[in-house]
Amino acid sequence: MGIEFRDVGKTYPDGTVAVTGFSCTVPSHRTLALVGTSGSGKTTLMRMVNRMVEPTTGSVLIDDRDVLGLDKVELRRSIGYVPQAGGLLPHRRVVDNVATVPVLTGTPKRAAREAARGLLELVGLDPALGSRYPAQLSGGQQQRVAVARALAADPNVLLMDEPFGAVDPIVRRGLQDQLLQLQAELGKTIVLVTHDIDEAFRLGDEVVVLKTGGIVAQTGTPQQIMADPADDFVRDFIGSDRAERSLRTVAVDGRSLVVDGDGRPVGVLEG
């Protein structure tokens, strides 16, 4: 069950190799974070799940069914999709954006809009924003709408393509918190693409670090990767040498203070 990448590869007609021999399983209700620099094939891999890209070798299975055997349009409607910034339909009001997939699958417009307002609340937006157009919202609000839209048809699987990449760090943090809270309630099977290792560690149950050409540098839980980076590439990518990654404790007034590599306080060690 869940999503399985079975030895998938993608070579484009011009000979560019995006991904080679990638295998990985995302159990149901878990989040897989694909992280890497541009050209690492992370987006290609995610797009194979809803057939925006079709693998040239191997197969992708959702609940043990090969996606290539499913109807493309129906498959996509059954999967929630959170695009990068700028992926909302600019000519549709926010409620209609959220109601997109239910309307496509035949839900009456009125009922779909009603449900959409509820979803706006679920992602922490004032339902009154529903009657605005996307360009009238801030970047952070727009991405909340994108999350609500992806959830509208209550899909089991959610694909997220650098969803919070274009917003400032404070807003990004808020969006990540919101997603974690939603995921705790809803338990979707999520494939998240990001170039931000901190985001991958925060949101992913399992993290795959990719090198150029879709080669897996390391797969593991955030803890495993942090504790035991597979090689110099991973060590460099996760920033093992960065001051904020090498913490130590110092005793101050009888308490254990955690400080980073530069000696700046990060927090207090409890227990």
Binding site: R47, N50, M52, V73, E74, L75, R76, R77, S78, Y81, P83, Q84, A85, G86, G87, L88, L89, P90, T100, V101, L104, R149, L159
Partner: peptide, 12 residues
């Protein structure tokens, strides 16, 4: 970006 997102959502 809009086209791609629309396609990925399942527009025919």
């Amino acid at each position: 970006r809009v086209r791609e997102a629309a396609e990925a959502m399942g527009y025919s």
